[in-house]
Design a protein around this nucleic acid. Sequence first.
RNA 1: GCGCUCGUAGCUCAGCUGGAUAGAGCGCCGGACUUCGAAUCCGUAGGUCGAAGGUUCGAAUCCUUCCGAGCGCGCCA
Length: 572
Amino acid sequence: MLRAIRASWKTRIEEELKRMNGDVVIPPLTVQTPPKIELGDIAFPLFAQAKVLGMSPPALANELKNRLGDHELLVAGPYLNVRIDVGELALHLAKKVSEDGDHYGHTRVLDGKRVMVEFSCPNTNKPLHLGHLRNDSIGESVSAILKANGAEVRKVNLINNRGVHICKSMLAYRKFGNGETPESTGIKGDHFVGDYYVRYNQEVEKDPSLEAQAQAMLKAWEDGDQETIELWTKMNEWTLQGLAESYESMNISFDHYYYESETYRYGKDEVLKGVEKGVFYREADNSVWVDLESIGLDKKVLLRSDGTSLYMTQDLGTAIKRNEDWPFDSMIYVVASEQQYHFKVLFYTLSLLGYEWAEDLHHLSYGMVNLPDGKMKSREGKVVDGDDLVEELQTLAREEIIAKEREDQVGDLAETSRAIALGALNYYLLQVSPTKDMIFNPAESISFNGNTGPYLQYMGARISSMLKRYDKEIPTSFDGSVLSLEDERSLIRQIAIFGEVVERAGEGYDPSQITAYLYELSKTFSRWYHDNPVLKAATPALIEARVGLSAMVLQVLKNAFALVGIPFLAAM
RNA sequence: GCGCUCGUAGCUCAGCUGGAUAGAGCGCCGGACUUCGAAUCCGUAGGUCGAAGGUUCGAAUCCUUCCGAGCGCGCCA
């Protein structure tokens, strides 16, 4: 609705400009939002138009206001602004929000589009670490945002369960495992296997021959050696069971799993076809290459001289397979920025093979996550374990609740602590633009004050608590004209633009648009609610309008929470 | 060396794709609870937007150069 109002003002003012001087071509107006609520709701800067007309921008603004003579117009220097009637907008929104409910703010810009989102992609030789957490957070959130824009989304996970690194943990287990299992030791499967991977790296320092043994094991695996396959199957199951538990506890899920043990064979045929077509070439040693110098990249190997495939070969094949499995309009790879080069090569190589959909592939690259006390380095054993981190956040949340003596208000303490930990984690990770490296500060993320997930959850709980005390039906229609405070018009405007924020987040694959919006909305509500009574407002009409407004804010909070993985905590 | 990404308050981050006096949070200092959840709210201080040029009515945003940081540059994944 706000969009329609903007558009109609734009044409109205442009027509007036044309009437002022029909001889010159007037540049189209740009539409903006004023930086402060006192300056109105829509802004039209007049610099370019004034120049063409030979006037100063402020003079033109005044002239336009006089000509149009509308009470909603106001002149602010070189800007002509519109201060819209919020009463009418509030009424419209109340109806819309209550009708749309959990879908309020969703758009249809991606209706009919099929989008595949690949994320997480763990190795089966160790548990998830902090980097995976950012990956999973972004993957889940972007998927939810695309769905909210109307797309049909398929979330896929590619399990890296093959390769020499997997054999390393297997080798260590065979040598030092003594038949122990996750069950017998009580250790979660992924951690159990991960411990053997660490053990390998310790042992190989003392005995370098282990390296060759791991390679030999990979060969045995590829040759289908029964004992090796059995060990591999068993250890993979342990890890995957552990990972499944982690995913579940973090509300992460997938529509489909791909396994590298199957996909690693893909792509060879495609590469050979490419050779026939002449887009790739063969070296004297029989290896196959693609020359990317025309786009400023190097030459890249696609098949080894012994004819075996590589990571790139496999990714080529996997992309093609996926498009066959589930033809998509676009596919997003959520993968760390260190693989930017890989994806450039991958996408361009696919286009060389003649796949037109190669241009619909997108690498959603995200930066590294570090801790306040320095870099995360796996070699130095400074990897931050994902399960441990969530556990730590949960403990911090529980301690905070107990310290504030809020136990009786939160219901199930363990469940609430978990919800707060997840909200804190997801909000903190998503509040930063994906492309940037970031520092994750656990204590800061869990704080109940400031720009954090728990703060937002608290706002949601408070509003729902207040609304529970209201003894009548929540109004879906009320007289919005009594909402005359600046904070009230600000809230109404924010509710109105939620859909645009969702759309922008979808266009840029950028959850931080949602987190920024959430904080702004909560902050405004919080200030307003602190200063102004709702249930005890002066008149029945004002009570009704403010309750209606609060209910709208609550619905928008819930809907936005769902897009960034923040669990909603209802009032007890 | 080459390529990609980035540089905004003491710290952690926004800045709506070129517009109004560059904004938050944390921390510091100072205020506000007999009242709807104080897990809150309000205020003060804190900036040469890495540097220098350029484009234009207008630049944190676009271009060039330089400085600094991270990540890549395997017949590893």
